[in-house]
Design a protein around this nucleic acid. Sequence first.
DNA 1: GCTCACCTCGAACAGTGTGCGAGTAGTATC
DNA 2: GATACTACTCGCACACTGTTCGAGGTGAGC
Lengths: 235, 235
Amino acid sequence: MSAKPFSSVWTRERKGGREQGLSRDQIVRAAVELLDAEGLDALSMRKLGARLGAGATSLYWHVANKDELIELVMDEVYSGVVLPEAADWRETAGVFAYAMRQAVFDHPWSASLIGVVPALGPNALTASDRLMGAFIRAGFEGIDVDYAMTAVVSYTLGATIPEVAFLSSLEATGKSMTELQAAVDPVMAKVAADRPNLLERYRSYAKDFDPLVARRLAFDFGLTALLDGLGTRLR
Amino acid sequence: MSAKPFSSVWTRERKGGREQGLSRDQIVRAAVELLDAEGLDALSMRKLGARLGAGATSLYWHVANKDELIELVMDEVYSGVVLPEAADWRETAGVFAYAMRQAVFDHPWSASLIGVVPALGPNALTASDRLMGAFIRAGFEGIDVDYAMTAVVSYTLGATIPEVAFLSSLEATGKSMTELQAAVDPVMAKVAADRPNLLERYRSYAKDFDPLVARRLAFDFGLTALLDGLGTRLR
DNA sequence: GCTCACCTCGAACAGTGTGCGAGTAGTATC
DNA sequence: GATACTACTCGCACACTGTTCGAGGTGAGC
């Protein structure tokens, strides 16, 4: 799971060939299917090979190793985030944030990969480019373009990763949200003694209508706050 | 790497015993050492056992499985983020952000774990509690307390995870930053044709003084923007 | 001295990523 | 049409993983 020479799939020349039988795209598609269906732990070269009616080691002709496969598969996630080409910077940032969030929701296994695996694939790059264009057009100057854009990306990732990770680990248990609350309740009570403020937080969640809606509101709250803050740095 | 019944180490009663020979704390300490020294992939039950002069399976008396061990080890990371008890909300938020960032820098393996593994350990909870207290005292009301705090945490994680992941994967290759740039340059040039804005971004990094300093500035830029935005919600 | 809970650990199982080398199939060249 | 060559497939094997099981030891309380 680690690369000695720094090499991304994207920094190597692609092998041009006859493309008969297995193809890289086919492998990547099958991998995404497998991941979506069974999660990250279920992705093994053998299983993936089997799903394609091929031997596990055949994959190694098309892909250097599993890490590379994962880079490829991650760019497939970024394919879900498409940005308008000539919109207001706030709108573009908003579209990015929600699209990115949705993309990770659509592929929950990506939550544990997304900041960690280098994002140099075509889809990731075009998204970056469009987002950056919006900040340039807005009037950010010099390195501020990069700073502002990075801030939006950071917030989006940082908000989405834990949310999706939590939801999918909850789903893996098969328990409902209320069941979990019942399990956590006593621990929380014991622990809240020395941590008075946490109780308040816990209560506010407990009395909350729909946790899914609440989380979306939380996401929006932070996002608009950040965009407001960035907006004041424009003049 | 997945739990069927939702159970965190922290939701189970701890086994009380004689605590002779191996102890849970000892195991966790050794695990952190191993992780710091050799990274996430190097942590195996057998290696950890060996480091403690014990058999691999002995560990399973003190820890249910590797996932639990990782939860324990992660709370050790949070032990690095200690917050003042009665400071201004902006200062507390700032201290949190920088301390969290530093904690992940100190334990780079945590970058791929940090939003993904449930953070219910004592250290994580006290940090949350202190941070939340600051937002309450500041005058945020109701659910906004939670929203504002979550925003700061989200930004911090989202900014830190990719940064640390990148730095440590770079370090793993042994190449320098300029060497990497040389490797990426041609790819970037080819790719930048359809993505005009990326070139600008790339340039601004290239001409930049010290990338470490630049990244810290970027972190600060986004953080103050966010805090400004949150501040206006206080009226 | 006996009992019993606490604790250790070797063997074994099912699984992993991947290197190697043998084997096949389709195309290009003579 | 035969030969050569490249593109590709894949079985075997290796070293390693997390974890279960059951047999053993070891110390405290009676």
